[in-house]
Design a binder for these strands. Structure first.
Lengths: 108, 108
DNA sequence: CAGAATCCAATATGATACTG
DNA sequence: CAGTATCATATTGGATTCTG
C-alpha cells in the first residue's frame, strides 16, 4: 500500500477497496472459506473477491490458512490487527446508517 | 453517491475520495476558506480539491458558505452530520497509526 | 479569490473462460 | 475448491490553462 500523508488516509486506503468492509464484517462473525464468502456476496465477481482478499492479507488485516487437503480448503480469518479495528468498523457501520437516513430524507 | 449493499460501504464511499479524510480533519480544527485548504494540502491539485469538496457537500458532511463580497470569500465547515462522525474519524486515525506501525515493522 | 474547462494517464472494476 | 488469465469498460487522478 502506498504511503499516506495522514493516518486517516492510511486507514481509508486499507479498507476502501470494493466491499472490503463487508468482507471484514463477515469474518467478524467467524472464519470463512473462500466459497462461503463468494456465496455471501453474490454481487462481487470472483476476480474482485480474490483481489480484495489478497490486499487485505497484504495489509495485515486478515489471515489466510491453507489446509493441504484434496479438495483444497482455504480459510480466512481476522488477524489481531483486524480484530483491533473492530470498534472503528462498528462506528463506521453506525455512521453509514446515519448517512443513509440523511440521503433518504433528501428524497422526500 | 451510489447505493451501497452495507452501511460500512456507504460510510467508506463517502470518505474514500482523495484526501477527504484530511480535509475533514482540517475542518475539524475550524472553518476554512478554499485557498486555506489548498495551502494546507499542497500535494493535491485544485481540480481534485474542488471535486472532493463538492462530493463531501453533496453527501452532507460539509457545508459551503458564500459571502457576497469582492473578492469572493467561501468558507467550508463541518455539518452536524460531519461533526457526528468525528469519533469514528478519531478511531480511524488511531487505526491508521496502528496500520502504519505494522507496515514499518515489516520493513525490518 | 475561488473556481471551471479540457485533455490525458493511471487504477479500479466487470464479464467470461480456464486450471491444478 | 479455490483460484488465474484475458479483455473491455468505467472511474479516478494529474497537469495545465482560462475566468467572473
Amino acid at each position: 500500500m502506498k504511503k499516506s500523508y495522514c493516518p486517516i488516509d492510511t486507514f481509508i486506503n486499507s479498507i476502501k477497496g470494493k466491499r472490503k468492509g463487508t468482507i471484514i464484517l463477515h469474518l467478524w462473525q467467524g472464519d470463512k472459506r473462500y466459497n462461503e464468502l463468494v456465496k455471501l456476496m453474490p454481487d462481487i465477481s470472483e476476480r474482485m473477491m480474490t483481489k480484495q482478499l489478497k490486499e487485505l492479507e497484504a495489509d495485515g488485516l486478515i489471515h489466510r490458512t491453507v489446509f493441504p487437503e484434496v479438495p483444497p480448503r482455504v480459510e480466512y480469518s481476522l488477524t489481531e490487527l483486524g480484530r483491533d479495528i473492530r470498534p472503528v468498523l462498528k462506528g463506521m457501520y453506525k455512521g453509514g446508517l446515519l448517512l443513509e437516513s440523511t440521503i433518504d430524507a433528501e428524497k422526500n
